[in-house]
Design a protein around this nucleic acid. Sequence first.
DNA 1: AAGTATTTTACGGGAAACCGTAATGGAAGA
DNA 2: TCTTCCATTACGGTTTCCCGTAAAATACTT
Lengths: 221, 221
Amino acid sequence: MYKKVLIAEDFDSINIAVEQTLKDLGVQEIQYAKYCDDAILKFKKALQDHQPFDLLISDLSFVEDYREVKIASGEELIQAIKKIHPEINVIVYSVEDKPYIIKTLFDEAQINGYVKKGRNSISQLKTAIETLLYGKTFISPELAHALQDKTAKEIDNYDITLLSHLANGVAIEEMETLFKHLNITPNSKSTIEKRVAKLKDYFKANNNIHLIAITKDLGII
Amino acid sequence: MYKKVLIAEDFDSINIAVEQTLKDLGVQEIQYAKYCDDAILKFKKALQDHQPFDLLISDLSFVEDYREVKIASGEELIQAIKKIHPEINVIVYSVEDKPYIIKTLFDEAQINGYVKKGRNSISQLKTAIETLLYGKTFISPELAHALQDKTAKEIDNYDITLLSHLANGVAIEEMETLFKHLNITPNSKSTIEKRVAKLKDYFKANNNIHLIAITKDLGII
DNA sequence: AAGTATTTTACGGGAAACCGTAATGGAAGA
DNA sequence: TCTTCCATTACGGTTTCCCGTAAAATACTT
């Protein structure tokens, strides 16, 4: 069993439950942080003391409050921790169910497990931990299909920037000027129109409004 | 202290924490349900046995899964329970922070307390329960402003229907035909355009795309 | 280096959105 | 019944979106 586990989770209620779960599993040392900034501090401290954590269980989204933070999301936190200690095992424990997001986490952040918060997630969390001990990866069964998701590959950063500006009220007319100003290429009105047309086609949207509604629902923007 | 409390919450991890909290407060009988349908069954059963619950702690959104359900949301559950037992006290315990939604809950569903899931929500939940015992209402301090929200009054069902259809890809051109087909009035293209213009003005949106992005973010659609 | 493919840009016509003004119709009050 | 008011509808002009075609620029092959 893992000896030393760090929980990064903002909600107190979930912290209570996860901590209890780890205790039940026989984890000796459990620490938790409600802010990503605190989590990375604890992690660095443990590394300095030559008693590093061997598992991180992290949420993805952390509610903003009065406190100013450097690391605002679980994904950033994982990237930051992997950078200073690549051997760390990571389980994401989140409500997020968008294939695009989850696929990216496995591909880019190289997480080891993904447990979706839900009706049966505590037992899944236990299974995930045991699975990781065998060197394998885990994903909640209801999300297994997420890893087959192709959206992540087909949609690039340019598309996401474009969609975001559309959602922020920038008209196609203004987009060319804006992109030139931001040094984003390609930036001709024609290409931008073509890209939007491609996206509408891809997401089977009737018009630009529909396109934004769909991509917002998918969590792409 | 409340004698008999029902928890309606789909996530197992949160159920664990809330149940523990109620135990700590000295609640004698605690039941929980992961589906709204189960919750109302338990409630009716208790009523029949002349041992009704005197407090309901309910989530708002319940994740859909394989199981078909009659009551899909916490709001519907609360309405249904209030209908058969108006004396019930209700605390909503949810991540939802959209003023529009919360204001509507107090105004329409007449809930007694609203606790936002967050970093300190368990202690807030305890305070909420104690506040209710004095016959007062409770709302998480960070959301106190929600009750002053005017959106709820200014935006009516017609607006929401219109926005939803817009988000679903219906063009303004087609909206007139659709509304006539659905017996929704007013339905002239002109009035529909005027309504959309009013909404864009209200939400300070540059265009219809922007409008949908904003109202989606606000949880209005 | 020449040829081919692909991406980007330019342009234009038709459709839809946008926005103001005026006409219509129905409800409330005198 | 008449008048006033307000919501709805009708209409038209301008702008923007939408979508196709073609030219230009860039990348890729041989």
